[in-house]
Design a protein around this nucleic acid. Structure first.
Lengths: 165, 165
DNA sequence: ACTGAAAACAATTGCGA
DNA sequence: TCGCAATTGTTTTCAGT
């Protein structure tokens, strides 16, 4: 009763497991099981479910931008000329197909998009922005912030007790 | 000659492997080997080296913020009162120890830091900002941008031919 | 530095509770 | 949903090229 068709739910043990694999997803289920007080099998079943339910969205390796010759990292606030759905959607597609953009956010507030861009050098970056931003008539303004330092390693979010939401 | 003691280098096959595991690090070495034209064993040795050399920094699961009850995501530009090393370092530590902050960047430009914050609700977020920002005398200004949409899934960076850098 | 086979290890599946 | 045991699959090691 009261179930609204939602199957993707998780309990406190799942939460603990996610905290672990958010830091390191190469931990063996044995180790995970040890830490959460469950058998390896149970942990694996839980992980499998979390993945197929989309609670765990992806499993990825993080590559060091510096180590692969991209020491320049920029955060770029982009404002479009007009906030029209079709223009926004077009810009989203352009973001997706641009390798230089590691990630992008569609936002509300001072700007419309925030982009995280890596480049091999300042010249590269400038050349890229000319191509990508300047030649784009839908873009009103661009504000670049140079990343000096990434303060937190990963991208972990806190996972607290699930609620019936 | 000209070698400054750097051993961490990678070749084009490594680059191809990294492209793959940046998307999905649970691919078996067998599959990776197939795609790059190498035996599974060779791929695994390469991955091991890439990891121990720090070219691959980490291997993590990406958890859906929405699915774990944190539908509110914010990007926050923070400007400190004064750009003094000790104040900056102190703020970095505060970022590190705050679970709500998924990641943070120390930047130059319009602000000093950009933070990515998740929250269970708007009230939660407001309460958090009061505690974290308002009560902090070193903070001059805070500008919040609401994340409507994340445009790109992961955090992949392009990996092109390595150079002697 | 690669391949391929064997050994070691981890994940998955089936079953009884 | 769990744990255990058996199976399947993956990674690691080792010898050979």
């Amino acid at each position: 009763m009261g179930n609204r068709g939602r199957t993707n739910d998780y309990d406190q043990i799942d939460a603990r497991i996610m905290e672990l694999v958010q830091e390191n997803n190469r931990l063996t289920s044995d180790v995970i099981g040890e830490r959460v007080g469950l058998s390896a099998t149970a942990c694996q079943r839980r992980l499998k479910r979390l993945r197929s339910d989309g609670i765990i969205e992806a499993d990825v390796s993080i590559v060091s931008a510096k180590a692969v010759g991209r020491p320049i990292q920029m955060l770029v606030l982009v404002t479009l000329e007009r906030e029209r759905i079709d223009i926004i959607d077009k810009f989203k597609k352009e973001i997706k197909s641009s390798a230089e953009i590691a990630t992008g956010f569609y936002i509300t507030g001072d700007a419309d998009f925030l982009l995280y861009i890596t480049a091999r050098s300042m010249e590269d970056y400038e050349q890229y922005t000319r191509r990508f931003f300047y030649d784009n008539p839908n873009i009103k303004s661009v504000k670049t912030m140079v990343v000096v330092d990434r303060v937190k390693a990963g991208f972990s979010i806190p996972i607290d007790l699930p609620e019936d939401d």
